[in-house]
Amino acid sequence: MPEVTEELRVVNSLGLHARPAATLVQTVLKFKSDVHISLNGHRVNAKSIMGLLTLAAAQGSILVVTCTGPDAEEALTAVRNLVEAGCGES
């Protein structure tokens, strides 16, 4: 099973709060692969809004994104594009 990992920086001025977290969940739900995000040793399922909220990722935090599954590459690309674009916000 392919697995890819990348570090991504949160650019949203308010961090990964409810709205961007929801956008992120909706995006990763489209993929078959498992997507996990770690921050400071806390690892959550990126398909869970609550998981993402408990990360409380502030602006500037570095997320470690790991995608595992048949479409891992595509999933990672989608997450990268989204996080770098501020998850639809600035």
Partner: peptide, 21 residues
């Protein structure tokens, strides 16, 4: 479990979502 997890988050804006949960 998640009420407790969210209560420990330092940022009030995240904590506010606990009520929805």
């Amino acid at each position: 479990r998640y009420t407790k997890l969210m209560a420990s988050v330092p940022d009030a804006r995240f904590r506010e979502r606990t009520q929805d949960l």
